[in-house]
Design a protein around this nucleic acid. Sequence first.
RNA 1: UGUCCCGUGGUGUAGUGGUAGCACAGCGCUCUUUGACAGCGUUAGCCUAGGUUCAAAUCCUAGCGGGACAACCA
Length: 566
Amino acid sequence: MEEDNNDSKPESLDFIREIIANDLSDGKHDSPVTRFPPEPNGYIHIGHAKSICLNFGLSNENKGGVCHLRFDDTNPVKEDSEYVESIKQDVSWLGFDWGENLFFASDYFEKLYELAQELIKEGKAFVCDLSFDEIADHRGTPKSPGKNSPYRDRSPADNIDLFERMRNGEFEDGSKVLRAKIDMASPNLHLRDPVLYRIRKTTHHRTGDKWCIYPMYDFTHCLSDSIEGVTHSLCTLEFEVHRPLYDWVLANLSVECHPRQIEFARLNLTYTVLSKRKLLVLVQEGYVDGWDDPRMPTVSGLRRRGFTPASIRGFCHAIGVTKFNSLTDVALLEHSLRQDLNETVERRLAVLHPIKVVITNFQEGQIEELEAVNNPKNPEAGTRTMPFSREIYIEKDDFMEDPPKKFFRLGPGREVRLRFAYFITCQEVIKNNVGEIVELHCTYDPETRGGNAPDGRKVKGTIHWVSAAKAFETKVRLYDRLFTTDDPNKEDEGKTFIDHINESSLEVIADAKLEPSLSEANPGESFQFERLGYFCADLKDSEHGKPVFNRTTTLRDAWAKKKNQA
RNA sequence: UGUCCCGUGGUGUAGUGGUAGCACAGCGCUCUUUGACAGCGUUAGCCUAGGUUCAAAUCCUAGCGGGACAACCA
């Protein structure tokens, strides 16, 4: 009988962790070496975060494990060091540390060149003069075999010479490539004499003009993994068909380390797109204000929106790792966010859509300081004071002239509690000459200071408020999902993702009324505006003493649901 | 008319021949100085058909469905 019977059962491992655990217990490896291998050609997004959490998570949770950050920078026409900096920032913001293990595939170019020569000498690679179109033509189709290149049988000596002259810049872009000699009849297209090197007379962001030939992904990636001693090379499902080539390259070269490639499903999220191409369209065509627009699923966008690293890590843990295509409900991400913010963030009061309330029996010009709790989840967060005055703002939605029975807020003759303040009763509704409500006249009960009635009477509703005299006015942006459909990638009836863009994904409130302490918020600082949602002082547009707030997400709202049901 | 991968509640997942579990979402209730949080309850699932077995989500076969693959991209 085990004595640990009150232990909760061990958390089950996903299939990748299971493979690694087995490799460790079998003694195949002492500790795992993984890598996150972005191409520096764009900003990383929540889908990359899944991969980052997997790869770095694996190194963190195994003794002696390491995870490399390696840039797959083999295509100079698309890449830029601007992207390497942003990716480094994002990975470390997410909470991961690559230590000394920062690498670039471009650092291996010389070694890769030597290995290519080795392949040529073995008669396993050749220089091909076919044009781009001819190569495509010779490749065949998934259902029919390809044809051999007429240059396939060049001698190793000729190939060595030609390859060197390619390197020396003697040939024009596109005039020659180096190809592996495998099998033009293979059912796997990637094995039909794949291109290994192409000529690109383009300046590389790191190697400058030193090279004019650049290795392809399939040649570079496996060898970079091997050079770095990676044990498990984790990638997304679309690379599954590349695995035979990954293994072929390593098996046909004199390298001692042969990592195991394992594929998992990439993340898909409802109400957004996660392809670099589509994200780029959103940015370039001005649908958003840049890669870090708070509506973007990029790590920089999420950061500006107010997501926390912990919430993203928690989400990545919750979704798991599998091999089947899925579409994860963004509600899961939001849940992870609220869970984190609810525990950690201080509360404040803010009125977004104000209506003025005059407390007729409160002395004119008087300001009273009331104490408010900063975080009911965390007593150590302490309290603050809020100024209370004769004129205050409350939320438009918190008043109804003709309220239904289930409406707990303010209405003519009704009494509610002002959060941390007093009970007030609505005595009079003031309208302008077109019949719009402009002001409410209420009376307060001085006995209820702090929010409790000595006579024990209860009120059903508590609403938030801000002193009109002392309000801090600033810009608040309310963000909503970027697309109106849960799967904007689905191209039904000739529609593209652009046709599903949510026209009202951004509402700007120019002068919201916030409690005064909020004027001191630091950029990046998050708060819960009670009863409204979580808000974050914008990293870019905030000025000292005048932060601009972004709504990160709303609170769950049972009343809104009830209202919609009716 | 190819090859490969994959099918568990609405969604994301667990299960490794022996009671289908968790989370999110939904619904209902309780609590509440946030209609939040929290707590409780509840709806709902093994793609189909055969086979092996005392016993199948799990093993086998076939079908059906989804996905990937024909950049000198990664």
